[in-house]
């Protein structure tokens, strides 16, 4: 996850390769999550056995964990801001806080999945179950990958110089993190708040 600009040290557009690549990747991710969300929307009401969405969703709980993820975006952007100013200790602090908030969110998701499972919604129970766990699970994996990257970054910063421009590395992971957050903004509304 390091960076240099083009070989000739100038690029045709004056922007960094890595950042352009990251945004290109995020554009592609829109179609990945779009497909998963559409699959859920198509199947959310199809329950031949087991609980219906409205019977098991715990809106207050999910609202809190959504809020936690939203706030992790704030701490992430503060980390990026500190990194650009060259404030290493502040960067590390905010990165750690972001990772902790992310971990709280994932922990909440694990708790939620367990609760749903105990209430009779398994992966194979119904189309709702399969598509719900697939969509939110994919998102959870993305968050987890983000946490690993954040923690690795903190660890590497403590040990040694990171290859590439430090601030840009933080910024790239930030872009990824915010993207995961905006996907949850959509999931929270479409999956949890709009009843079937």
């Amino acid at each position: 996850m390091t960076d240099t600009t083009a070989h000739g040290h100038t690029s045709s557009t004056g922007i960094s390769n890595v950042k352009l690549g990251m945004w290109t990747f995020l554009g592609s991710e829109c179609l990945l999550f779009g497909g998963l969300i559409s699959t859920y929307m198509l199947y959310r009401g199809r329950v031949t056995g087991g609980p219906r969405p409205s019977q098991i969703f715990d809106i207050p709980f999910t609202s809190v964990s959504s809020f936690v993820l939203l706030m992790s975006s704030l701490t992430m952007v503060l980390a990026v801001s500190a990194a650009h100013k060259g404030e290493d200790r502040k960067t590390n602090l905010w990165l750690t806080v972001t990772a902790l908030l992310g971990a709280t969110f994932v922990g909440g998701q694990v708790y939620e999945f367990t609760a749903f499972y105990n209430e009779g919604l398994g992966f194979s129970t119904s189309l709702f179950g399969s598509s719900f766990y697939t969509l939110t699970g994919f998102h959870g994996v993305h968050v987890t990958v983000g946490i690993i990257m954040l923690m690795s970054l903190v660890g590497i910063f403590k040990r040694s110089e990171v290859p590439g421009k430090k601030a840009e590395v933080v910024e790239m992971i930030g872009l990824y993190w915010h993207f995961v957050d905006i996907v949850w903004i959509i999931i929270f509304t479409l999956v949890y708040l709009i009843p079937v």
């Binding site: 995020l26 554009g27 829109c30 779009g34 929307m41």
Partner: peptide, 21 residues
């Protein structure tokens, strides 16, 4: 250019999946 790359993907996703649904 960043906006172009991202919103191209987003608009395409919304359009295609809306038509699909």
């Amino acid at each position: 250019l960043f906006s172009l790359m991202f919103y191209a993907g987003l608009v395409l996703a919304v359009g295609v999946y809306a038509a699909f649904l």
